[in-house]
Each structure stands twice: as C-alpha cells, then as structure tokens.
Amino acid sequence: MIHNYQFNFQELDISKNEISELLGFNGEEMPEPFGSYLEEACQDAARLCDIRGAVYISENIEFISNNSAFTIDGQFFDAGKLISRQLKKATSLALFICTAGEGISKKSQALLHGDDPAKGYVYDVLGSITVETAMDKIQRQLREELSATGEKLTNRYSPGYCDWSVAHQHKLFSFFPENHCGISVNSSALMHPIKSVSGVIGIGKEVKFNKYHCEMCTSETCIYRNLRSRAEKIF
C-alpha cells in the first residue's frame, strides 16, 4: 500500500537561520543582497513549491547472504555493503519518493544559468532544504505511527550514494504509479523535477539510526554534509 503526503511550504517551518548557515554564513548576519534574495525566495517558495511524497512499505523482503543486496517483493536491489549492512536487521523496508516540485527546481535552474547565479544558488539551496525537510517530516510521521509497536527506523539511503547505483532508480520507481507525485525518471535514471529525492528506510525493532559518515567524503562545502548533521539532531 502506498502512503501519500502533501505539505505546503509554511508548514515545513524552515528557519531562515538554518538556510543562512547552509549558504555558508555561519552565525553571521547575511550581507545584502543575500538577505533580500532569501526573503524573496521564501515568499516565492509558497507559490512555487508543490511538495509531495509517497512511501511504499513491504514486509516481503529478503537479504542476500553476502550482505550487499536485498529483495523487495522479489525485486533485486544491489545497494552495496555499506547500505545493506545498515538495513539487514529490518523486518520491513519503506521505499520513498519526495519532491519540492517543478516550480522551484525550474526557477533555481533559470537563475543559475541566467543573469543571477547568486540568487539562483539561494533558490537551489532552498529547494534542497525543502525536499529534505519534507522527508524529515514524513520520516517523523512514520516513526510516530510505528512507535506503538516498538519499531524504529534507520537513516534514509538513496541510489547514487554509498555505492548504490543510480540505475536502480527505475526499479525503485516501479513500486509507484507512473509520474507519481509528479516525479519522473529519465533514461540516465535521473529524477525530474531536480529537487526530488528517493530511497529506502529500514523498519524493525532492532534497527538503528546512525551518524552519517560524511567524513568519508572530501567535499567540505557540500550542502548535504550540513543537512545530514541536522538530521542527526532531529532523529
């Protein structure tokens, strides 16, 4: 069964301080024009964002003995050892998709490639934090629903990261109706709109939410490094 979610931008309650930090202004006041850009982007986001998500949960799962792959309803996912190991104590798996919508993705791309890349970057960061915050909210709702049974959730893991081939995106999306939540996948397995995420979450009494291992990556300025340290505080 597929659980659907829809949010408006305001109910995500994204703090401007948090966006400011993700932009690189750590604790300091944002100089102009960035303050105005952010103000404009946040006002625009209410109109531009079409925030939708969906989760498919299956108990029909099996882990392959070498710990690098699993199946969901008979579909084989070779997600790599790093991810499969984190999931292996799960008794069910939740596949998720979520998007901030086409409007904000298009707007940030137009600005980034047009005459105001700096403003485009503000919209881009806002789009990323919007979709991640929406998924945080979905994950929190799932956790609350499961808490009565004593079940817990793992972190979210996505194709394209930690050796899980992005090509598996097609298999993941086969669990959802075509163009569900307005998200499609192209021949290179890339999602459209750009500000979309997908992946898997493990569910079970023995699973754990772990710290992300961003220290393994060399990108000091990666926005996801900051988003993930934030997730560690939330869950």
């Binding site: 932009l23 690189g24 202004f25 960035f34 105001d116 890349p117 700096a118 970057y121 503000v122 300025t221």
Partner: peptide, 10 residues
Amino acid sequence: FVPQVLMSAK
C-alpha cells in the same frame, strides 16, 4: 563560500 564566489563571477 559559494555565494561570495558567485558574486565575484557576476
């Protein structure tokens, strides 16, 4: 950070 570099690029 990125925003300042983008302003320089602009």
